[in-house]
Amino acid sequence: MIRFLFRFVGLWILAGAFVALVLDGVRSIASSEIVTTPLGVTWLATSPDSLTRFQSFVETRVSAGVWETLVVPVLGAPLFVVAGVLGLLLMLIGRPRAV
């Protein structure tokens, strides 16, 4: 049951990554240059309070260095890449056992 849930959520996240890729592609065609939307920009536009709470959580509970070296580059990566990797990881975790 839990494997199905991982595959189900992973598939939805992959679908979202595809939508983000298409939107970036349309914006790139319209502006005649490569345009990507970073994860941080999307998160800030969607829920700025949760982003600031996540930042304070990481800086106080883990380390400020982790925020700068690990989280900031991920927030700067294109949304479709981050969502695609996350979706693929969930799909791999939920794959059926080999017989």
Rank of each mutant, 00 (worst) to 15 (best):
E33W: 05
V58H: 03
L21G: 06
F57R: 10
V81K: 00
I34T: 13
T42N: 03
P96M: 02
L5P: 00
G40M: 01
L11T: 12
F57V: 04
P38D: 08
T60A: 09
L14C: 15
R3K: 14
M91T: 09
L39M: 15
R53L: 12
G94D: 04
L86C: 09
V19S: 10
S56Y: 04
R95C: 06
A20C: 11
G94Y: 03
F4D: 05
A20Y: 04
F18G: 15
L39S: 03
A20G: 04
V74G: 07
R7H: 03
F54E: 07
F57Y: 15
L23N: 11
A64C: 01
R7W: 04
R53M: 11
T36G: 00
A98E: 12
L23D: 08
F18H: 07
V99A: 15
F54D: 08
I34F: 13
L88K: 00
V35Q: 11
I93F: 13
G25D: 06
D49F: 09
E59L: 07
M1D: 09
V41M: 02
M1K: 02
P38T: 06
T42I: 06
L92D: 00
V58L: 09
T46P: 00
L14E: 06
V19E: 12
L44A: 11
L90F: 13
G25R: 03
L89Y: 09
M91E: 04
S50Q: 14
A83C: 09
L75C: 07
T36Q: 12
V9M: 07
F4T: 05
L14Q: 10
R97H: 10
V26C: 04
G87F: 00
V41L: 08
M91I: 09
R95N: 04
E59I: 09
A77F: 05
R61V: 10
F18A: 15
S63W: 11
G65Y: 03
R95L: 14
R97C: 05
A83Q: 05
L21I: 02
V9Q: 01
A30Q: 13
F57W: 14
A98D: 13
G76K: 12
G65M: 05
V19P: 02
L92T: 03
L21W: 15
V72M: 12
V66K: 01
V85H: 01
T52A: 12
M91G: 06
V19C: 09
